[in-house]
C-alpha cells in the first residue's frame, strides 16, 4: 500500500506564513529595518550626521530631494540619523529580550513543571515584579545609577522576564501531564532532558510570538525613556531623543519630531504585525 504524498511540516508552515498578509508585511518591515541598521554606514546619504557636527547654513531645512526627512536644528540630515537611531532601538530589543526571555522561560518552566514551593516562590515573585511599572522602574534605576542606555536596558530587563515566566509557566503546567513527558520519565530521562528537550521545544512557538510582539513594546519603552531624557547620551542618534528635541520647533518645523516619531511607529508596527501573523501561523492561543 502506498503512502499518500505528504508535505513536510516546515513547508506547511512556510505555506501558511506566505499566505498570511499580516505576517508577510510585518516580516518585510522588520527585515527592511534590520538591513538598514546593518548597512547604515553605506546606504545613508550623509553618514557624517551621526556625529556632533554643526552646519548652520543647512539648519531646519524642510524635506526635499536632497534631505528626504529634512534637517534638524544644527543642520544634520534627519533620515541618516533615523536609520542610525534604529541601531539603538534594535540593540535595546536584542539585549533586553536576550537576557529576559531565557531567564523568564527557565524560571517559568521550573515553576510549571515542579509545582509546590518552587512554583510559589517563583510565581509570587513575578506578582511583585508586575506591581512595578516598567517605565517607573527604569526611572528609579536611572536615578540610582546614572541615566544611560546600559542602565535603561538593565532596568527594562529586570522586569521583563516576569511576562515570559508567566507565559511559560502556564504552558508548562498544561504540558507536564502529557503522555510524552510521562513516557520520557518512564524510560528514565533526567529532569534536564525533560525540561530542555521535551518541554522547551513545545513552549517555543508561543515564546517566539510573544518575543515579536514584545520587541515593538521594548522599542516604545526605550523611546519613551530617551524622550524623558534618560536614554543614550547625544550625539549618538536616538529616535526618542530626536522627537523630544524636535518638539521644541513645533509646529513650523514639524518634520524634526513627526518623522522620527513615525519611524518609531513603523518599526513597532512591523514587529506587531509579524507577531500577529506568527500567532496565526503557529496557531498559538495563549499569547495575547
Amino acid at each position: 500500500m502506498s503512502e499518500p504524498p505528504r508535505l513536510s511540516a516546515g513547508y506547511l508552515r512556510w505555506y501558511r506564513f506566505s499566505r498570511n498578509p499580516t505576517a508577510v508585511i510585518g516580516a518585510a518591515i522588520v527585515l527592511i529595518c534590520i538591513a538598514a541598521t546593518i548597512l547604515a554606514p553605506w546606504i545613508t546619504p550623509f553618514p557624517n550626521a551621526v556625529k556632533a557636527v554643526v552646519d548652520f547654513r543647512s539648519r531646519h531645512l524642510p524635506p526635499s530631494a536632497l534631505h528626504w526627512f529634512g534637517t534638524d536644528d544644527v543642520g544634520r540630515d534627519i533620515l541618516t540619523r533615523v536609520i542610525f537611531g534604529y541601531r539603538v532601538s534594535l540593540l535595546l530589543v536584542v539585549v533586553v529580550l536576550g537576557t529576559a526571555v531565557p531567564f523568564g522561560a527557565i524560571l517559568g518552566m521550573l515553576a510549571g513543571y515542579y509545582g509546590g514551593w518552587v512554583e510559589i516562590a517563583i510565581m509570587r515573585t513575578t506578582d511583585i515584579a508586575l506591581a512595578i511599572p516598567p517605565l517607573v522602574m527604569a526611572l528609579a534605576v536611572a536615578a540610582v545609577l546614572s541615566p544611560s542606555l546600559f542602565h535603561s536596558m538593565l532596568a527594562i530587563a529586570i522586569l521583563w522576564w516576569t511576562w515570559h515566566a508567566r507565559l511559560v509557566y502556564s504552558l508548562a503546567r498544561q504540558l507536564r501531564t502529557q503522555e510524552y513527558i510521562e513516557a520520557a520519565r518512564m524510560v528514565g530521562a533526567g529532569p534536564l532532558h525533560i525540561l530542555f528537550r521535551e518541554l522547551l521545544p513545545n513552549c517555543l512557538p508561543p515564546i517566539v510570538v510573544k518575543c515579536s510582539l514584545d520587541a515593538g513594546f521594548v522599542i516604545l519603552v526605550g523611546a519613551s525613556l530617551s524622550f524623558l531624557g534618560l536614554g543614550i547620551r547625544p550625539p549618538t542618534p536616538d529616535l526618542g531623543t530626536m522627537v523630544a528635541t524636535g518638539a521644541a520647533y513645533l509646529p513650523e518645523k514639524w518634520w524634526e519630531s513627526v518623522l522620527p516619531g513615525c519611524a518609531i511607529l513603523f518599526v513597532a508596527l512591523g514587529f506587531n504585525l509579524l507577531g500577529d501573523g506568527l500567532r496565526d501561523v503557529f496557531d498559538v492561543q495563549e499569547v495575547r
Binding site: A223, S224, F227, G240, V243, A247, V258, G261, A268, L269
Partner: peptide, 9 residues
Amino acid sequence: VTPTFFLAL
C-alpha cells in the same frame, strides 16, 4: 504601536 509621547504631541 504608536509611542504614547508621540500621540500626545
